[in-house]
Design a protein around this nucleic acid. Structure first.
Length: 154
DNA sequence: GCCAACGTTGGC
DNA sequence: GCCAACGTTGGC
């Protein structure tokens, strides 16, 4: 199995919105970046775990853990011309965008802030994608060693 | 609100 | 295939 980090803006969909969702599950729709799509379509497996990361907010950081409960399948919001993420180049018989379903496993009592993660940028968390300069990718892999270390910070 | 970094688009 | 222009991300 693999580990991941998935970003979401709490204003749009934060961990509390996930906790309030039916079965604490949601489809990770709206991703319009090829690299992130490839991870969801090709690499994520049922049972994989991901950190839920709050971006573009007062205290960016990791706020909990989700589990992949359904593997990549076409993102229907790409077919909906009234949706903000509509993409006319994605067709039902040849979909361009994919998503997975995730279920909330755990909400941390406190945010593991980006600031606190950065303290280990040259140590135990060296190479963690979210710490790389200019990183914008909304879905990134996390190594098993990094995963374990971050969990101990929670 | 600012702006650096980055991905995508499209003209050539 | 190059690269300038543009739009978006996301920390600060």
């Amino acid at each position: 199995m693999s580990y991941w980090l998935m970003k979401s803006e709490p204003v749009t969909f934060g961990i509390d919105a996930l906790a309030a969702s039916p079965r604490k599950t949601t489809s990770w729709d709206g991703v319009r970046n090829f690299q992130a799509r490839n991870f969801m379509r090709d690499r994520m497996k049922v049972g994989d775990l991901a950190f839920f990361y709050h971006s573009n907010c007062d205290e960016p950081g990791i706020v909990g853990v989700v589990k992949i409960v359904r593997e990549g399948y076409p993102d229907p919001t790409a077919f909906d011309r009234n949706d903000a993420h509509y993409d006319p180049d994605s067709k039902p018989d040849n979909p361009r965008w994919y998503m997975v379903d995730v279920q909330l496993q755990r909400k941390f009592p406190h945010t593991i802030s980006l600031t606190s993660l950065k303290k280990h940028a040259d140590g135990k968390l060296k190479g963690l994608a979210v710490l790389q300069r200019g990183n914008r990718l909304s879905i990134t892999p996390v190594s098993a060693a990094h995963w374990k270390f971050i969990l101990d910070l929670a």
